[in-house]
């Protein structure tokens, strides 16, 4: 019996596929906004959510999603207010999340082994009902991340400009935060809460080494995420280690390869085709001494009526049989 015939492995691989797609998808927007560590913070807060589920006997996935959405909303509100204390407020939220989680899990009578499956992922714990939740959430994240792509791109690229185009920036920022929270919950079973942020950021950083456009970065990051997740799950089964660690180590190995290749390609590209302004200045004549038009009272402009003559990189104006060209704050005879 191969591992692909094992039902728990099938569920783990489906969950891994969806995690590999949705984590880099939302991660691309987080990296673009320079909020790479937001996923990490939400992951910490989600631990409290999981613990609440274990303590109350309800499904940890559901309590985790509720608590992480609340936490992500709080992070976004603190960020949007842009106060200097925001950084500290975030730290309080993160550590409160992880400490509260560990405390509550202890109270629930669960040991470190249970906690570990949530922190670093576990192949055997994706139950069929978990899988339905994960599929539903991941599909929602992907539909929003792709369908609202142009809007989210604009908000992450230049928030002020996005507001002046009439976009509801605050709402879209909240959408990103909530999607990040949902993704954390989706990825909880596969990579685990402590490593989920790596799966949001590392594939994007890897893709950036070779891409030039947002769209290609997005697609490449998702492909890298899927490959890392599936390969990591298979390796994890064979080596009997936590899947989260294998997935992230594989993703990081991919980054090292891509960064090296990217550097070499760029260096080679530079040698082959220098930028126009980096070309050696061979044969460029030294500037000739120039004749300043004395006592020139008239300010030429394209509407002044004097005949215009294209002259290299500028325009000369014909004025009483002379050619006048703008030079800094005066006019030259050409």
């Amino acid at each position: 019996m191969t591992m692909f015939q094992l039902e728990f492995m099938q569920r783990a691989l489906i969950a891994g596929l969806l995690t590999g797609l949705s984590a880099p998808a939302i991660g691309t927007y987080l990296v673009q906004r320079r909020l790479s560590l937001m996923g990490d913070g939400i992951g910490h807060i989600a631990i409290t959510g999981v613990a609440l589920g274990l303590l109350t006997g309800s499904a940890p996935v559901l309590t985790a999603i509720l608590v992480s959405i609340a936490g992500a909303t709080a992070i976004e509100l603190v960020r949007a207010r842009g106060k200097a204390s925001g950084d500290v407020a975030l730290a309080l939220l993160f550590y409160g999340g992880i400490a509260g989680g560990v405390l509550l899990i202890g109270l629930a009578g669960q040991g470190a082994a249970t906690l570990n499956t949530y922190l670093f992922g576990s192949l055997t714990t994706v139950s069929p009902s978990d899988l339905y939740v994960v599929v539903g959430l991941a599909v929602t994240v992907l539909v929003v991340a792709i369908g609202l792509g142009p809007q989210l791109f604009a908000v992450c690229q230049d928030e002020e400009f996005a507001r002046v185009t009439g976009l509801r920036v605050q709402l879209l920022n909240l959408v990103i935060a909530v999607m990040a929270a949902v993704t954390v919950t989706v990825a909880m079973r596969t990579v685990g809460l402590l490593l989920v942020s790596a799966l949001m950021v590392v594939p994007v950083a890897t893709a950036q080494q070779v891409t030039r456009s947002f769209r290609s970065t997005f697609v490449t990051a998702c492909v890298i995420g899927v490959v890392a997740c599936l390969a990591g799950i298979v390796t994890s089964y064979n080596a009997n280690v936590a899947p989260g660690a294998t997935i992230v180590v594989l993703a990081l190995a991919g980054f090292v390869v891509a960064a090296t290749a990217g550097t070499l390609i760029r260096r080679r590209h530079r040698q082959v085709a220098p930028l126009p302004d980096e070309e050696p200045e061979v044969g460029v004549p030294v500037p000739e001494p120039h004749v300043v038009s004395a006592g020139h009272p008239h300010q030429h402009d394209p509407r002044c009526g004097h005949t215009k003559v294209e002259h290299g990189d500028h325009v000369d104006y014909v004025h009483d049989g002379h050619l006048h060209a703008a030079h800094g704050d005066h006019w030259d005879e050409h």
């Binding site: 906004r33 369908g147 142009p150 791109f153 604009a154 690229q157 891409t211 456009s213 947002f214």
Partner: peptide, 22 residues
């Protein structure tokens, strides 16, 4: 921004005020 974007992508975000979602 933090992710590469092409000139075309940046300029087309100027059309968002007249674009429907999805």
């Amino acid at each position: 921004g933090g992710v590469p974007a092409t000139v075309y992508e940046v300029v087309s975000s100027g059309l968002l005020s007249q674009r429907r979602m999805f």
